[in-house]
Amino acid sequence: MRIGEIAVVSSDQGDRGHFLESLCDQIETVNEDISFGRYMINDQLLIHFYGIYPQEDRLSLDLISQKILGYIILFRWGDVNSFRQAQKFADLFTSRYGASVVIAGHVDKNKPGMPKEFESGIPIDKRGVFIFCNISESRSVRKVVLALVDQILDQHNN
C-alpha cells in the first residue's frame, strides 16, 4: 500500500474540518492542532489529508513536512487577516520546504458565485496557484486538490 500525504492549512479549525469532510472517506480528529482524513484511490493507493494550523514553533509542520506532497492553504475571501496568514504560509512552504502550494480562497455559498474563469485557478508563481473554492461543496474541494496535483505534475515534468 502506497500512501501520499497532503496538508490543508488554515487558522480556522472548522474550515479545516469542512474541507476534509467534503473530500475524505474517513475523518479522525487527533487533537485541536491536527485533523486527519483518508481518501482512498484504490486498494493500493491512499492519500492522507492533514488539517493543521502550525503555530510559531512550527512543530506540527516539521513533524509532517518530511513526507508531504504539497500544501493547500485555505483562507476566507474578504478576511484580510486570514489572507495575510495565507501569504505567510505560502512563502514559508515554497521557500523552506520547496513544496507545491495551492492557495484557496473560501467563498461562502451565500455570496455571489465565482466567475467560471477562476475555477481552474490563477498561477501566481512557478510553485503556487490561486483558486476560489467553497469548502462545503464536494466538487469545489476536489477542484482544489486537482489544482495541487497538476502543480506537482508540472514540477515533475520540469
Binding site: 502506497r2 493507493l45 518530511q66 513526507k67 506532497l69 520547496g98 505534475l153 515533475h156
Partner: peptide, 11 residues
Amino acid sequence: QGNICLNKSEL
C-alpha cells in the same frame, strides 16, 4: 526532503 513520494503514475 520527504521519504514517501508518489511517482507519476500514482499522481
